[in-house]
Amino acid sequence: MSRAFEFQFASSRHVPTLKVLRASIDDFRYDRHAHTEYAFGVTLSGRQDFFSAGAYHRNPPGSVIFFNPEQPHDGESGGEHRLDYVMTYIAPGALAPLFAEAAGDERAQRLISPRTLITDPFLRNAILALSRLVRSGIGSRIDQEHLLQQIATRMVQRAGRYQRTSPSVGRPDALLRRACDYIRAHLEEELSLERISAAAHLSRYHFLRLFRAQFGMTPHQYVISCRIDAARGALEAGATPGEAALRYGFADHSHFNRRFKRIHGVTPFHYQRCLTH
């Protein structure tokens, strides 16, 4: 009898911050969360159903899924068949020069894709090839960088939206960004809605309303997502699960385990073991 869900992570030996997830899901649902990285992948079989960018999506086999950094989403298996997919994660800083080069504009270092689901055989094949290299531990650094360049260039060709290095943003966006920056700067401390909304120079009422409308998740969900993300980085740097849980404000090890697994599909110990073998 097969397991209801299986998750296997692998990190690139050549490209810093590049990681790949191979997942097989039958009875599992991700909590709503967001990643600091770009996340792009391909559904291999089955169907992935998820909510993101204000809408529900159904991701069929062969379709590319693309999440911008800090784009909230959840996810589960849809339909009657088991869901199998791969996802690739990489820090914005690693893709920034590739986007700029492809766009011919050194300021165009952050691409914001307006589409979450993309039908593009070239892009799909490049993502699958990159994931195979990372998961198999084969190929050289230039092989992986070449595929990343292909992916970045294709996204540019699909007329993505760019955030310039000195963006001009509206006041609500700037205030909410200030709140997000405050949260990330104080993850190891006690956080409250009062402190976060004060950092954004907004009343609690307006802060809650604007934050939910802008990010599609509550401030509490965002804080948990950020703390899990920071704890994941600590695990990758060698911290024990217990140390990471204590550092980022989780009540105990079991609480950390539950939260981590509902976002990444595996326990902190399993995640760390995947990336060190």
Rank of each mutant, 00 (worst) to 15 (best):
residue 205 Y to E: 15
residue 205 Y to L: 09
residue 89 Y to A: 05
residue 159 A to D: 12
residue 209 R to N: 14
residue 64 V to T: 08
residue 62 G to L: 02
residue 83 L to N: 07
residue 38 Y to V: 02
residue 178 R to E: 00
residue 134 V to N: 01
residue 71 Q to I: 03
residue 226 C to F: 06
residue 103 A to F: 05
residue 88 T to H: 04
residue 95 L to M: 15
residue 76 E to V: 11
residue 247 R to L: 13
residue 104 G to M: 09
residue 14 H to L: 07
residue 172 P to F: 06
residue 144 Q to Y: 12
residue 158 R to I: 06
residue 245 A to Y: 06
residue 277 H to T: 13
residue 232 R to G: 12
residue 36 T to R: 13
residue 122 F to Y: 15
residue 76 E to C: 10
residue 29 R to D: 01
residue 59 N to W: 10
residue 274 C to I: 00
residue 163 Q to A: 10
residue 177 R to H: 11
residue 27 D to T: 10
residue 51 F to L: 08
residue 155 M to C: 13
residue 118 I to C: 07
residue 125 N to C: 08
residue 156 V to R: 03
residue 168 S to Q: 14
residue 65 I to C: 08
residue 254 S to G: 04
residue 67 F to V: 02
residue 38 Y to I: 02
residue 188 E to A: 14
residue 98 L to R: 13
residue 143 D to P: 07
residue 228 I to N: 11
residue 93 G to N: 15
residue 238 G to C: 10
residue 148 L to H: 02
residue 162 Y to F: 15
residue 233 G to K: 08
residue 15 V to G: 01
residue 95 L to V: 13
residue 22 R to H: 15
residue 7 F to L: 06
residue 172 P to A: 09
residue 200 A to Q: 00
residue 41 G to C: 03
residue 85 Y to K: 11
residue 176 L to F: 06
residue 178 R to T: 02
residue 40 F to R: 00
residue 7 F to C: 08
residue 35 H to C: 09
residue 106 E to H: 08
residue 157 Q to Y: 12
residue 87 M to Q: 13
residue 122 F to H: 11
residue 179 A to W: 01
residue 153 T to N: 04
residue 176 L to S: 03
residue 148 L to I: 01
residue 205 Y to P: 00
residue 64 V to N: 03
residue 157 Q to N: 15
residue 67 F to W: 14
residue 98 L to M: 15
residue 54 G to V: 13
residue 28 F to V: 00
residue 49 D to L: 12
residue 204 R to M: 05
residue 150 Q to I: 13
residue 262 R to I: 01
residue 63 S to Y: 05
residue 168 S to G: 09
residue 186 H to T: 06
residue 12 S to M: 04
residue 39 A to D: 08
residue 61 P to S: 05
residue 12 S to A: 04
residue 191 L to Y: 14
residue 138 I to V: 15
residue 111 L to Y: 04
residue 105 D to G: 04
residue 90 I to R: 00
residue 58 R to G: 13
residue 59 N to P: 02
residue 235 L to W: 02
